[in-house]
Design a protein around this nucleic acid. Structure first.
Lengths: 231, 231
DNA sequence: ATCTGTGAAACGGTTCACAGCA
DNA sequence: TGCTGTGAACCGTTTCACAGAT
């Protein structure tokens, strides 16, 4: 009755999220002149278990050779194809503060499949300022970018309080994939995909574990105690 | 027989990862003068389902009132305590390239529970350069930072090829929590926690879904076809 | 009447263990 | 023999649905 996930070209989300890591590891292996890997070796390089790696790759097809392993170049090509990186995706970065400028200068974008075609800022006094190879443009240019340059992905690098407004403009212009660096939740239509990157969140998760670790010393003495509340 | 996870103060990883989001939402509500929320409202503000929110909060304790909801300040305090944000965590950023400088200038750190106490770079010619309030220091200062300033969290903002070396030095100095912005896997002892933030990975995940979407048009005509391979 | 807190069911993802192929 | 590809068991997470508190 319900649409079978695997049947409709469906790779599980968790697998998709790991494919870039495999691609990174494969690229690194290729640079070192290695042309063939076992699932064990590639898994170690990507920081996952070999069973997980094999299961992930099985969703793409059968590109390994039993008893031998995977050909590095071939597998890298297949993963690139699965991720849609055989074409270059035009990206626009919105918000030219510290973070936005750092992202604009980041060479990792161009490395694999992405092309920063525009830098935008809501503040018209910044418009025209050169940042790297590009000049800052105004938000109003968004529609033209989507129409003429097939802009597909927007990166929000603004403060939290203008992020929703920027998201609305991106969506209005036809962008349906957003990478959000602002520390807030974006409200977008259900057909728009948002991924969030937030360093405070990551640090807070680290803090949780760090705190647990240092607090452990006091607890080992009296095990089983549950009702200890600090107040 | 096996140690019960929940009994030993164990909050599930998935819940911990969402607590910062709840805290963000609560802070935002508090700023708007709202002092009480239902699980439904808070869940909407944090972008999750209300059932998930309630289950997450239930791991911290019973801080809501049935028939009423949660007191904003109280819940924010409880989550802060659970995350270990009642104390300020000293953080060092390693790598003073574009990204490192942007992170150093990022005000979001100080906002909640973190204090950037040092900026480091392997390149001694950068040592002494002022970046914001701080001057760049040499890697050799790490031991002193851990010993004298209780440095607990290291942020790696170097290129990929020096990230492992930096991680080794951080671990050697006694840092056991690392936030890695370099696009590579770090090899560290099992008691060291690493979290990775990688914008290329995030963009590649977006590209996958974007590609799926545009490819969909061709597939809708002939449903159920599985063996279509682009080669 | 309302909304939290939570067992129980359903789901998705991971790990196991081995059949299948070179 | 060696390593991939995969059904089946397992485990953590999410969702459901309602008992319990105010």
């Amino acid at each position: 009755m319900s649409a079978d996930v695997a049947a409709r070209r469906g790779i599980p989300d968790a697998s998709v999220a790991r494919l870039p890591g495999y691609l990174q590891a494969l690229t690194s292996l290729a640079e070192r002149g290695i042309s063939s890997v076992s699932s064990e070796e590639l898994a170690a390089a990507a920081g996952v278990s070999s069973a997980k790696l094999r299961k992930d790759l099985s969703h793409l097809g059968s590109y390994g050779v039993r008893g031998v392993g995977y050909e590095v170049d071939r597998l890298a090509y297949e993963i690139s194809t699965a991720l849609g990186l055989t074409q270059d995706w035009p990206v626009a970065i919105v918000g030219m503060g510290n973070l936005g400028r750092a992202l604009a200068a980041y060479s990792g974008f161009a490395t694999r499949g992405f092309n920063v075609i525009a830098l935008l800022d809501r503040d018209d006094s910044l418009v025209g300022t050169p940042v790297g190879d590009l000049a800052v443009r105004r938000m109003g240019d968004l529609d033209a970018l989507v129409r003429d340059d097939r802009l597909a992905i927007g990166v929000i690098a603004t403060p939290a309080d203008s992020a929703q407004d920027v998201a609305d403009r991106l969506v209005g212009a036809g962008v349906r994939s957003i990478l959000n660096f602002a520390p807030c939740v974006l409200d977008v239509p259900s057909d728009v995909m948002v991924r969030k990157v937030d360093m405070s969140t990551e640090l807070q998760i680290l803090a949780f574990h760090e705190q647990r670790r240092t607090g452990e010393l006091d607890l080992t003495a009296q095990s089983g105690v549950e009702g200890v509340v600090a107040l």
